[in-house]
Computed example of a mutant assay.
Amino acid sequence: MRFVYDGDLSDSTPPPGGAPAGSDAIETLFLDYFVSQGLATEPTALDGRSDYRRFIEAGIPAAAYGGVAGEQYDPCYHLSCDDIDNLSPVALDQMSDAAAHATISLAQSTQAVNGQRGKGNFNVKDTGPPTPIASISGN
């Protein structure tokens, strides 16, 4: 299953202090990407932990995702069997593509995350054709 951190806190209990600024935009970036690929997602709490005990206690994963209620989705999570032999090449491919999409998108513009145009923001107003180099140099 493709879990996406709940950056806008719409599907989880807010952590103390709330979500870091821009988390909602990053969540949307990933959700939009997965929708564009026709891939389903599930939210996961953005609570600053790597262990999601409440998720497990709530009976998730459910049988719909190949898991057993009350048990970890990945039986090797944080155990010695959690190694290179315990991965899904399909999930790795999908998640790495999503991470690349997010990286490229945020390299082009961080405005959705921090409200500021920054270096690399390619969402600029079209001012017409570029000025020829000869005109710039005075030649």
Results as ranks from 00 to 15, higher is better:
Y5N: 11
T28Y: 02
P129N: 13
V35Y: 04
E27F: 03
A21N: 07
A40G: 10
V113A: 15
I133Q: 10
F30D: 06
F34Y: 15
I26M: 13
Y77D: 14
P14E: 13
V113Y: 11
P61W: 12
G128M: 03
T131Q: 07
I133S: 03
S80D: 11
D85Y: 07
R2H: 15
A98V: 04
Y52A: 09
S137M: 08
P61T: 11
A100I: 10
T41D: 06
C81G: 09
I60G: 00
I133Y: 11
S12E: 08
V4L: 10
R2Q: 15
A91R: 14
P14H: 10
N114T: 08
S23M: 06
V4E: 10
G17Q: 06
A99H: 04
A45P: 12
S23E: 04
D8F: 03
N114L: 05
N121L: 00
I104T: 11
L29I: 07
G7M: 07
D24A: 15
C81E: 08
R49K: 11
E57N: 13
S50C: 01
G128T: 04
F30P: 07
Q111D: 03
P15Y: 03
T131D: 03
A98N: 09
K119L: 13
H78N: 13
S96H: 08
P130A: 09
F3E: 10
H101P: 05
T41A: 04
G118L: 05
D93V: 00
P75K: 05
D93F: 12
S135E: 15
L29F: 00
A99T: 08
Y33R: 05
Q108V: 01
G66D: 08
E42Y: 06
V124G: 01
D97E: 12
Q94F: 04
Q72M: 09
A102P: 03
Q108Y: 01
A21P: 15
G118D: 14
A98D: 09
Y73V: 01
E57P: 00
D11T: 07
N86Q: 12
T110C: 06
A64Y: 00
V35M: 01
C81I: 01
L79N: 05
S109Q: 05
P129E: 15
C76S: 10
I133K: 01
P14Q: 07
D24K: 13
D11L: 00
T103S: 12
H78A: 07
P75G: 11
A69Q: 14
G67V: 07
G17T: 04
G118Q: 11
A69D: 13
I60P: 00
A98G: 14
T103K: 01
A62Q: 09
T127C: 05
D97R: 15
L29A: 14
C81W: 05
G18M: 03
Q72Y: 11
D126H: 06
P15G: 08
S135P: 00
A21D: 13
S88N: 08
F3Y: 15
I26D: 09
H101C: 02
D126G: 05
M1Y: 07
T28P: 00
D24I: 00
P14D: 07
A25H: 10
G59K: 04
Q37P: 02
H101I: 00
F55H: 15
